[in-house]
């Protein structure tokens, strides 16, 4: 057995570990959820939990509101992230700092964004306190608990994460395209609208989809500050901990999971060239 052989064994070992960990961390709990969601009180098989989750107005309206909320905030996030991504991708002044700032966000759980929003915009947050001192008014008091406050919390993690996805595509863009456009006499606006945006379209879609999926699963911010909208993961949490309604909670989780898989499948079928589906797009 030479060096190659032992290396192959290490590689197989690593892959085996990955499979094991994935099984343990993802497939086993999902299987357990699926089982629980299909059982009734007397441990018989039933679809009742799914009927309730997919027909009950409480669950359906929360799901619809959450999907709409996440789609809108993700769209806004991609829009806001584009200039930052351009700076990171083209390597201008401050691009490294900006990249590090964006990467830092991966270290924060969603609950951290909830805390940040509370520190800034809670009833006694920095901004309401400053506003009170400067203007003796209190327009920003309790902003954290409004739907806009919640959106701001989501944007906090959506913008940096989508910026990184878009920045990768910008790095990979062929600079000759822009040079050619310039040679042909296009001005900056024309280059942006007619060359850059169409080239980046797959990356923008990928950033949107990734951000959207991440947002749909986000829980911490909503648990802390969502008062005006019933965010689906929080409703799952309430069913689980507040009512010990494991069947319903599991059915909700599976429904959310299937929905995400469905979205990905539809996208893959319709846009097979999305960066999201290509492991080479880095």
């Amino acid at each position: 057995m030479g060096a190659m052989g032992s290396r192959a064994i290490t590689r197989h070992f690593a892959v085996a570990m990955l499979v094991l960990v994935t099984m343990a961390m993802l497939i086993a709990p999902l299987g357990q959820l699926l089982l629980v969601s299909l059982r009734d009180e007397s441990a018989g098989w039933t679809l009742a939990n799914y009927r309730i989750v997919l027909a009950g107005s409480y669950y359906v309206s929360s799901l619809a509101a959450t999907l709409a909320f996440c789609a809108i905030t993700s769209l806004i996030a991609v829009g806001i992230a584009l200039p930052a991504a351009w700076r990171i991708g083209t390597g201008g002044v401050g691009s490294t700092a900006l990249r590090i700032f964006c990467q830092m966000n991966y270290a924060f759980g969603s609950i951290v964004y909830g805390m940040l929003i509370l520190v800034l915009f809670g009833n006694a947050g920095l901004i309401p306190v400053a506003e009170g001192i400067l203007f003796s008014s209190e327009y920003s008091r309790g902003f954290a608990y409004t739907i806009s406050g919640l959106a701001l919390g989501y944007l906090g993690f959506q913008i940096p994460r989508s910026a990184l996805v878009i920045a990768q595509a910008i790095e990979n863009m062929d600079p000759n395209l822009i040079r050619a456009a310039r040679t042909l006499g296009a001005d900056r606006l024309q280059i942006a609208v007619m060359v850059i945006l169409p080239t980046l379209r797959p990356a923008l879609s990928a950033a949107f989809v990734l951000t959207f999926l991440m947002s749909v699963g986000s829980f911490g911010i909503a648990l802390l500050v969502a008062k005006e909208i019933a965010i689906y993961p929080v409703i799952i949490f309430k069913e689980f901990t507040g009512f010990a309604n494991f069947g319903i909670a599991s059915a909700m989780a599976i429904a959310l999971c299937l929905l995400v898989i469905l979205v990905l499948m539809v996208l893959r079928r319709n846009y097979p060239d999305l960066e999201l589906f290509s492991s080479q797009a880095r």
Partner: peptide, 13 residues
């Protein structure tokens, strides 16, 4: 755990 109900839910689970 966070609160009485959460403790109960965890013990059921």
């Amino acid at each position: 755990k966070n609160g009485s109900s959460t403790a109960l839910a965890a013990m059921k689970a």
